[in-house]
Amino acid sequence: MTIAVRTLDDGAWISVNDSRQVSVSDVWTLSRGVFCDCEPAYVLLEAFVDVSVDGSIVFADAVGQCLECGTRDPIDRLPVGRVVDGEFRPYDPEGVQWRVEPESERASRE
């Protein structure tokens, strides 16, 4: 089944199948090293710049800021949810530490 994803409203939302599903303004918990040296890093997503689907996983490219050290940087391929039986199930930004796929792994897979 085709999954339609796009950023909307000047990068404020990720739309999945024409429904706004993931919003900026949530704080995501990321493992140390993938964004900054904080452990864990609490990162406010400020804007989505792109979105993609790999298998059933929806990935976002975003700009974020660490709430502890203030680092502001792009984040590539942050997994924000997955599609199960045609329905989008967002990941909980607060509950789980998400690991951003390292560049090296992505490059080798591509």
């Binding site: 409203d9 404020a12 919003s23 406010l44």
Partner: peptide, 10 residues
Amino acid sequence: GTEFCSLSIV
């Protein structure tokens, strides 16, 4: 703000 706006954070 977040009362109605998609973009606002607060």
